[in-house]
Amino acid sequence: AHHSAMSPEEFISRIMEAEPPEIYLMEDMKKPFTEASMMMSLTNLADKELVLMISWAKKIPGFVELSLADQIHLLKCCWLEILMLGLMWRSVDHPGKLIFSPDFKLNREEGQCVEGIMEIFDMLLAATSRFRELKLQREEYVCLKAMILLNSNLCTSSPQTAEELESRNKLLRLLDSVIDALVWAISKLGLSTQQQTLRLGHLTMLLSHIRHVSNKGMDHLSSMKRKNVVLVYDLLLEMLDAST
């Protein structure tokens, strides 16, 4: 079925099924970390997650119907935000910790060994606390992640050709489906109409914080790469080069 003909419930169950599997770093962690070893673990994990992120995006109903140029552009714009929201979701029940993967968990203080990363860890932990306070539900989380992807370049490009315009219109209709799905997920929580509206506002406002942390993270990673602290390669390199 086309996403426009799907009920919000159906749409959510499709994006729940699209969720990537749990991923392990599978490295022998030598503690204490050095700046280089921690950056290497973080980038290795990010590279593995990126491969799964592409398959995830393709499973979002309607995504592959967008032009290939739009698909590429969207993913290049939002990949670090998506990684960060996933990290927040994994960490939501572990105050003070960042659960990068089941075998790679860091305390805030462990950020001390990488120059400039503690500031980013603190922003990640603060946004995670907000999600904890709001008691973020899995259904809401998957909607927010799809929203980040589809919203990521809406205001940075304007369609020129007829083909671009068509893809843009498809994108807007797809965003409508995701917003409907999020509204439906919130409506299942037994809140008053006013509380539902407030919750929608609070959840979507958090996305601007995630964009901010992602920009900070992007600057940090490119400076680590420039200073040769870490060797960035493969898909991660391609995505990083696109954003800087």
Binding site: I54, S55, K58, K59, L68, Q71, D234, L235, M239
Partner: peptide
């Protein structure tokens, strides 16, 4: 061919 393009254009198994 970039890796992103390659991953986007391969058919799911």
């Amino acid at each position: 061919h970039t890796k992103l393009l390659q991953l986007l254009t391969t058919k799911p198994e």
